[in-house]
């Protein structure tokens, strides 16, 4: 059956391991639905244009700017927001330890990119890979050195069992199923 939505419709979103039903217009972006309807405000609006990365969440294991995804598109996919990490993730500890933020507004987006990076590369990747992934986000407060340090620290920690890291990104139609180059 072809999916089709018109006007405000109830859609099902799987966020942080839980199923939610929300009423959304097809034109509603995922970011607004997460924030306004589910109260998940860790992902932030910074530009709504895909340029700053503050709204980054993880969808099926990949970092995605939730300002550039329709909520209806996210149906049937696994969405992970910072709230879903719950404070257990290596990335979170590393960010605190490395003093990797000041105002904290971009932090959620950077954390999600780092967490996805660690999902994708089980060992510390080369510096250029880290840069490539983190270049999707902007920070206006720090010098970025602190963020580099956080990535290294993240890899020095053993992730707690049962953390979202254990679920490898499944191959889907929407998102690339490319193999891990390492």
């Amino acid at each position: 059956m072809m999916k089709k939505y018109e006007g405000k419709t109830v859609i099902k979103l799987r966020v942080n391991g839980q199923d939610h039903e929300v009423a959304a217009r097809p034109a509603d972006i995922l970011l607004d639905v997460l924030r306004q309807q589910l109260g998940l405000t860790a992902a932030k609006p910074g530009c709504l244009n895909g340029d700053c990365g503050a709204c980054t969440v993880i969808v099926d294991g990949w970092p995605i700017k939730s300002c550039l995804m329709l909520a209806v598109e996210a149906e049937g996919h696994d969405i992970l927001t910072l709230e879903g990490l719950g404070g257990r993730a290596a990335a979170q500890k590393a960010f605190v330890a490395a003093n990797s933020f000041q105002c904290g507004y971009c932090t959620s987006g950077f954390l999600m990119v780092c967490h996805a990076l660690q999902n994708h590369y089980s060992e510390l990747p080369e510096e250029y890979v880290i840069e490539e992934w983190l270049q999707a986000n902007l920070c206006r407060c720090t010098s970025y050195q602190e963020l580099r340090r956080a990535v290294r620290l993240m890899y020095e920690q053993t992730p707690p069992s049962g953390s979202p890291r254990d679920s490898r990104p499944p191959a889907t139609n929407v998102f690339p199923a490319g193999k891990n180059p390492l």
């Binding site: 072809m2 999916k3 089709k4 939505y5 018109e6 006007g7 217009r25 097809p26 034109a27 509603d28 972006i29 607004d32 709504l48 329709l70 209806v72 598109e73």
Partner: peptide
């Protein structure tokens, strides 16, 4: 936020 609504469809073929 997109001001004007549209219809969304996801064909299989």
């Amino acid at each position: 936020m997109i001001a004007y609504d549209f219809m969304y469809m996801q064909p299989d073929t």
